[in-house]
């Protein structure tokens, strides 16, 4: 990439979210998570460990806040001051929201995290210098830094356990940032496979590890620009727009009976993950 190339294509390189002249085509990966279905069982999180070579840091490092779980399950209690949480807890799977206008992308000094044309917020490990500015600017704090060289740390991957490592993913050494990738290795493999067949991916052909394992099917993943995809239909039914910082439906007086929302969308990162509110029975 030369300077003239940079200048000529400046507008293209700097597109961080789809605009009218360059829409997402043919892919925009997005997710929908139904909190009413999520039971908080943590299977997705463990699937993520298994798929993405996430190190188990151990008790001491966990205590220091250096855990690496790309997907964490948050547990919220109702805040109405009752003696017992008699409507249970709310579980929320939180991982990189693959924001369309991601705060992390603009600040990285070396461009190690940037937006792909298929709507992912990619993290290029080998480009990362470890300034951690991306994490500093992430409103969701879903980026995890390799504070130690986990591959060589004792008891993280003893010799036998190295055989479990997924060879499709780079093993991250010390000093690089990492985060949920929407299982980009599966997306790329899928894209390659269908290119050979001369078509684009159909809904369900690529599953993320968390989606695949979720016993209650709370996680839906797919191509948002494909009208056939479940995720497209869900977003549409919930009237959630990718590039809105306040949803049209939320402007109605008294709210709506739709459950879809995105977290911290008022900050305008345009997250690619839509959550659907938990429901609690009113008759009891």
């Amino acid at each position: 990439m030369s300077v003239s190339n940079l200048l000529e294509n400046w507008a293209e390189f700097r597109h961080t979210h789809p605009v009218d002249d360059v829409p997402h085509d043919p892919y925009k990966w997005a997710m929908s998570i139904d909190l009413d279905a999520c039971s908080g069982c943590n299977a997705c999180s463990i699937a993520c460990y298994a798929e993405n070579n996430i190190p188990v840091v151990g008790k001491d490092k966990f205590e220091h806040g250096q855990v690496m779980h790309w997907m964490r399950i948050e547990r919220y209690w109702p805040e109405d001051g009752r003696e017992f949480p008699d409507q249970g807890a709310t579980f929320l799977p939180m991982m990189c929201q693959q924001c369309e206008a991601a705060p992390c992308e603009t600040v990285c000094p070396v461009g190690a995290t940037n937006h792909t044309a298929d709507g992912l917020n990619s993290q290029i490990y080998n480009r990362c210098v470890g300034s951690r500015y991306c994490s500093a600017n992430c409103p969701f704090k879903v980026r995890y830094f390799n504070w130690y060289d986990y591959p060589t740390t004792e008891n993280v991957w003893p010799a036998e356990m190295t055989q479990q490592l997924n060879p499709d993913i780079t093993l991250r050494g010390k000093g690089v940032m990492e985060k949920c990738t929407f299982c980009v290795q599966r997306i790329r493999a899928g894209e390659r496979a269908v290119k050979n067949e001369g078509r684009i991916l159909r809904d369900g052909e690529v599953q993320t590890a968390c989606q695949q394992v979720c016993p209650t099917g709370a996680i839906t993943f797919g191509n948002l620009v494909d009208p056939e995809s479940k995720v497209h239909q869900k977003w549409k039914a919930q009237q959630v727009e990718l590039t809105a910082d306040e949803q049209e439906k939320d402007k109605e007086e008294g709210g709506t009976d739709l459950r879809g929302y995105r977290i911290l969308e008022e900050l305008r990162p345009y997250p690619s993950v839509m959550y659907m509110e938990r429901v609690r029975e009113s008759a009891i």
Partner: peptide
């Protein structure tokens, strides 16, 4: 820097990878 040994990635110089640093970054 987490990877001090790779600090030169953040310098704008013509290189074998054909990459530039991110001119948008305040850093």
């Amino acid at each position: 820097l987490g990877r001090l040994w790779q600090f030169y990635y953040s310098l704008p110089y013509p290189n074998d990878r054909g990459l530039w640093p991110n001119f948008q970054s305040p850093l």
